[in-house]
């Protein structure tokens, strides 16, 4: 309890929480903007190689974050192909890594939820004379629980992720230190109770965001 207070009153905490939300928030928005339409497109279309794409997406959901981090690190390194951007060890690199981790989740789960909308409803919509785009919109609305689940899953996946952001962000105090890397740092220093307190804060944060997302879904 004392440590929780210590964590809460720490001047760095606000900064760390703000950065955590900023990095994860931007990564989530981008991966949703790309992932949801892409998932809907795949889910509604029939094309050759669809099962291969599906397998690819499912594999992507299981990508070890630290491998993603390593991959992003090598690409953004000054001796890598995108080195001139100077993104390594900045929040931008962390956002890139989190997008790569979140994208298979948003795409794949949206695809699944769109596919699981009952075929009867699809036929009904067609029978009512909807255009393809109207139909797509209606189906997506119908599948919104699944789409929200996709976003929630992606959010949970990236806000709690540590391997990749540690590697590409560098856990620089005041610059790239987020809740998870701060937890690792305090654990490394043997300050278990402070690490635990930060973990609790992360948990509360995730709970609040998820509750908000569910409210949105209800509308």
């Amino acid at each position: 309890m004392e440590d929780l207070l210590r964590a809460l009153t720490s001047s760095d905490l606000a900064e760390i929480v703000a950065l955590t939300l900023r990095v994860t928030g931007i990564a989530l928005i981008i991966s949703t903007i790309i992932g949801a339409p892409l998932g809907a497109l795949i889910g509604l279309s029939k094309f050759r190689g669809k099962s291969f794409v599906r397998a690819l997406l499912y594999t992507g959901m299981g990508l070890p974050p630290v491998v993603v981090g390593l991959f992003v690190y090598l690409i953004l390194s000054r001796s890598g192909p995108l080195g001139s951007l100077s993104w390594l060890f900045t929040p931008s690199a962390m956002i890139v890594a989190q997008i790569v981790i979140a994208l298979p989740l948003t795409t794949g789960l949206t695809m699944t939820s769109v596919e699981s909308v009952s075929p009867e409803l699809k036929r009904q919509i067609a029978a009512l004379g909807a255009t393809r785009s109207q139909a797509a919109w209606t189906i997506l609305r119908e599948a919104r629980i699944g789409v929200t689940a996709a976003i929630v899953a992606a959010f949970g996946g990236i806000i709690s992720e540590v391997g990749a952001v540690m590697l590409v962000g560098g856990n620089i105090a005041g610059q790239t230190r987020v809740l998870t890397t701060a937890i690792v740092l305090n654990t490394r220093q043997g300050d278990f109770s402070l690490a635990l307190a930060l973990g609790l804060i992360l948990l509360i944060l995730t709970f609040i965001v998820n509750t908000a997302l569910m409210k949105l879904q209800g509308r």
Binding site: L19, R22, V23, I26, I30, I33, I34, P37, L38, L85, S86, W87, T90, P91, S92, A93, I95, V96, I99
Partner: peptide, 20 residues
């Protein structure tokens, strides 16, 4: 949608929290 998404993804991280 895809084009919008790609543009967003291409420029957002650059813009975001100030690389270096």
């Amino acid at each position: 949608l895809m084009i919008v998404a790609l543009i967003m993804s291409a420029c957002t991280p650059a813009a975001t929290p100030a690389p270096t």
